[in-house]
Amino acid sequence: MLLVNNLSKYYGKFCALKDINLEFDNGIYGLIAPNGAGKTTLIKMLTTLIFPTKGEILYNGTNIVDMDDEYRDILGYLPQDFGYYKNYTPTQFLMYLSALKGIDKNKAEKKIKELLELVAIDDVADKKMKKFSGGMIQRVGIAQALLNDPKILILDEPTAGLDPKERMRFKNIISELSRDRIIIISTHIVSDIEFIANEIVMIKDHRILYKDSTSNICKSIEDKVYETEIQFNDSHDFKKKYISLSERQEGENMKIRFICENKKEIKSTWAKVNPNLEDVFLYEYNDNLKEK
């Protein structure tokens, strides 16, 4: 079990995270928050790349910083900007990292073959990576994080740059893995983790806003999300009044999904809909969504 205890992180005087308390057991945790909210900062502390200004992180009761190489031994990590050696092939690069992870050479060879098949880049396993597309590199990154069969797997925006088919494959891989390990995934693409995450962690104003299951979080805006059709001409005024969540064209009209917080304003032509995680995200971080 991974326990985050009263964690705060300051960059100089700038406060990135404040009084964070979290608990992770085996399962998938989705970390969602807008740009600059501190996801990467939290992840870097969980991977001991940077250290908390205050507080501590414990794995089974031991501070992860004190565990040192024992902790790194059970950790898999995909950084937000995954770097690689351009002149290496995926196989060479993964062999190199396996060696640094202290994995026996024969075991590593077998594991690498497996992993490259898993992320479907086995056909280019021996091509130099400088010829790879962004999505292919990202998949090498995912494979790399799984080399040591980590007990704690931390992925910082793993689906960035993946096409829908590969995102689907990724979801399946992760669900498969989640049974006996802690998986923490940060992402902006809410739909990528909405249905596979056991719990969602949301950060707002440097603090934890939610740490709960998707359905419980969605309950927070139950009875507030509606859909209706309006004319394009009216849309400007409408969006001044309500937070728009999504819009699409429907013949001559526009179908709009929005938040209405005042029960008295509800009209009979509106259809109440079940909120999803993306609605919550837009609702919570809506500062600039209402048209002025």
Partner: peptide, 18 residues
Amino acid sequence: QNGTYEVEMICKYNIYQL
């Protein structure tokens, strides 16, 4: 300088030990 700093840093044998 290498972008690989972070992945190498969380390996069992990291940059300082190497």
